[in-house]
């Protein structure tokens, strides 16, 4: 049973149709939601939180209907917006604690969970400083902390890595991974960097102009392509000699850097590659399967 399910969900604004009979399931675990700006991600989040009534179709969040159980759903869902939302003159400890109380936690539990959560996101030292002086990385952590402080069962993260430098981005992804896979909180995370989602998401959902373009497990999308990459050791030009030898045998071969890429349609071709290397008296370093990246998948999708 997934955490979110929509059936033919349509949301129409006076002039635009933001969601167009969207049918999508978000399973437990970490789900990447991909879509360009204006694809309908924000509208979907509003509907899921029960803040916007759909024009037609049905939605279920954690087994409840947002139209009627909005408050109950918002108790069990965390939300980290894409934009800045932290008051500059308050420190993180007070702010996160207040947000915990606003989510319905009793004071004592709110205080305890605030210090726990700030430690988990790595804001232990700075938590008593006004948030106006925080770096972008610290602000993102504080935003994440307020989204999980009330121990939600589902957390919606909107571009959590926006504006972060590579190191801070890695740390944020690690945090999201921990939340989704160790804390047992289901995560729906949006990002425009597919490479990021590939690292942490179990599932990927692609939305375009309010419609579902594709939904599948990340591993399905990044499945083996059938190509292999062969790396050999030998005198200069060794890779070209190998490539030529394989071409002579009628295989599809192309150079890729100093390695040779080969399309394999039949497992016996792998033996042929090995034999060709031996015949040329070269050292075989490795034969590696090539996997699709999400990026490639979506480029193909767009062409189609």
């Amino acid at each position: 049973m997934g955490v979110v399910g929509t059936r033919d969900l349509t949301v129409e604004y006076p002039r635009v149709r933001a969601l167009d009979s969207l049918t999508v399931d978000i399973p437990e675990g970490v789900t990447g939601v991909v879509g360009v700006n204006g694809a309908g991600k924000s509208t979907l989040i509003k509907v899921l939180l029960g803040l916007l009534r759909p024009t037609s179709g049905s939605v279920e969040v954690l087994g409840m209907n947002p139209a009627t159980d909005g408050p109950r759903i918002r108790e069990l869902v965390g939300y980290m917006p894409e934009h800045d939302c932290l008051p500059a003159d308050v420190n993180a400890a007070e702010f996160v604690m207040h947000m915990a109380v606003m989510s319905g936690l009793p004071h004592a539990a709110a205080r305890e969970r605030t210090s726990d959560v700030l430690r988990h996101v790595g804001l232990a030292e700075e938590r008593h400083r006004p948030m106006g002086g925080y770096s972008t990385g610290m602000r993102q952590r504080a935003k994440l902390a307020q989204a999980i402080v009330h121990d939600p069962r589902l957390v919606l993260l909107d571009e959590p890595t926006n504006g972060l430098d590579p190191r801070a981005r890695d740390e944020m992804l690690e945090l999201v991974d921990t939340i989704g896979h160790s804390f047992g909180i289901s995560v729906a995370v949006t990002s425009h960097l597919l490479g990021e989602l590939e690292r942490i998401a179990d599932h990927v959902v692609v939305i375009d102009s309010g419609r579902l373009l594709r939904a599948s497990a990340t591993s399905d999308l990044t499945d083996v392509t059938g190509d292999v990459l062969v790396e050999v050791l030998g005198p200069a030009g060794a890779d070209q000699r190998l490539g030529q030898a394989l071409l002579d045998q009628g295989m599809t071969v192309w150079p890729q850097g100093d390695k040779v890429a080969v399309r394999v349609t039949d497992p016996s071709q792998l033996d042929a590659i090995r034999d060709a290397v031996v015949d040329l008296d070269l050292g075989l370093v490795r034969i590696q399967e090539v996997r699709h990246t999400l990026e490639e998948v979506f480029t193909q999708e767009a062409v189609r």
């Binding site: 939180l49 939302c85 008051p87 500059a88 606003m102 989510s103 319905g104």
Partner: peptide
């Protein structure tokens, strides 16, 4: 809350 857009975080919480 409007200036810092914190209001959005309130809206994602139980109170209407």
């Amino acid at each position: 809350d409007l200036r810092y857009r914190t209001i959005v975080l309130y809206y994602a919480r139980p109170l209407s």
